[in-house]
């Protein structure tokens, strides 16, 4: 009888644990349904072809246009700048701490590096707007107060730890015998690093890049504060522009009643953002698994 009681408790607890774990599925379903529902409503009023091809985004103006391109362009431009910074710094640091310094030093540098990812994004926004942009004005005198360059660079520094840490993990997973094989052939450290270690860790390194891009695309506060809130289809990074995320914040700050077309636009914009990051996250997940399996 006592044994039966234990078994029942065990079954109930396993059930409760399963329910907790499956909650995450409901979150995903919730996100998709919420975005889908309002997006479909949005496309009932605005044809999808206009959304994808029009070059103006002015839902809050009298003369309304709903072309996502200006927002998408700003998102891609700022992310691109961020990735140039994050990849050049992040990968160099990863190679350095993985191959060139002692493990004890690595154990100290890595957590300090992580602080870059812990600083709240609103703080980076402040830094970009009030420190980096004035600094850039000394080089580019005609840079606007709000511009894509400054938040892009700052966002890059925020993403450095993601790339440095994950790439370092991937390079650490390259087995010792592969490196020794390189040295046995008479290669020096540089040749082993670039010829053996980096190619072997490539899927892990790529996963870190893609995760970095996904973070840059979804980043909100830095670009909202420092890139401005003016949809502007331009490739001039010294001009103000509005990213997808910044637009959602702009609308949220105002008192837009639910059910209006303006309200629906933030879900259409959110859907665009979700699809972009979803694809990137899935690619990075499989790339990461690939290198983990290879050297198990």
């Amino acid at each position: 009888m006592k044994i039966n009681k234990n078994k029942i408790i065990e079954k109930i607890s396993e059930g409760a644990l399963f329910i907790s774990a499956s909650l995450s599925i409901f979150v995903t379903i919730g996100i998709i349904l919420v975005l889908l529902f309002e997006t479909i409503e949005f496309f009932k009023e605005v044809p999808i072809i206009k959304f994808l091809t029009e070059k103006q985004w002015t839902p809050l103006f009298e003369d309304k246009h709903f072309g996502i391109l200006p927002l998408l362009n700003a998102t891609i431009l700022t992310s691109l700048i961020a990735m140039v910074v994050a990849i050049s710094f992040g990968l160099t640091i990863a190679v350095y701490i993985s191959e060139y310094i002692k493990p004890e030093q690595r154990m100290i540098i890595k957590p300090i590096m992580e602080i870059l990812a812990v600083v709240p994004t609103v703080v980076y926004g402040y830094f970009a707007l009030l420190f980096v942009t004035p600094l850039l004005r000394k080089i580019f005198p005609d840079i606007s107060t709000f511009n894509a360059l400054s938040p892009g660079i700052v966002m890059g520094f925020m993403i450095i730890p993601i790339i440095a840490t994950l790439s370092d993990d991937a390079m650490q997973a390259v087995p010792k015998w592969l490196r020794e094989g390189g040295y046995a052939l008479g290669a020096n450290k540089f040749q082993v690093t670039t010829g053996v270690v980096i190619p072997s860790a490539l899927s892990g390194i790529m996963a870190s890049f893609i995760l970095g891009v996904s973070r840059a695309i979804g980043e909100t506060m830095i670009v909202t504060i420092a890139a401005g809130q003016m949809p502007n289809l331009t490739f001039n990074v010294l001009e103000p522009m509005e990213t997808i995320t910044a637009y959602i914040v702009q609308v949220s700050l105002g008192d837009t009643p639910a059910g209006t077309l303006e309200f629906k636009t933030i879900f259409a914009a959110g859907m665009t953002l979700f699809i972009l990051t979803f694809i990137l996250n899935i690619i990075s997940y499989f790339l990461k698994n690939k290198y983990r399996e290879r050297y198990r």
């Binding site: 995450s24 599925i25 979150v27 995903t28 919730g30 996100i31 919420v34 975005l35 995760l211 996904s214 973070r215 695309i217 979804g218 980043e219 909100t220 995320t245 959602i248 914040v249 949220s252 933030i266 879900f267 959110g270 953002l273 979700f274 990051t277 979803f278 990137l280 996250n281 899935i282 990075s284 997940y285």
Partner: peptide, 16 residues
């Protein structure tokens, strides 16, 4: 699913 949720931009959770 969890790995993807970790990468969903936080502003999307705001919409949810």
């Amino acid at each position: 699913n969890i790995s993807n949720l970790a990468g969903v931009p936080s502003i999307i959770y705001g919409l949810l």
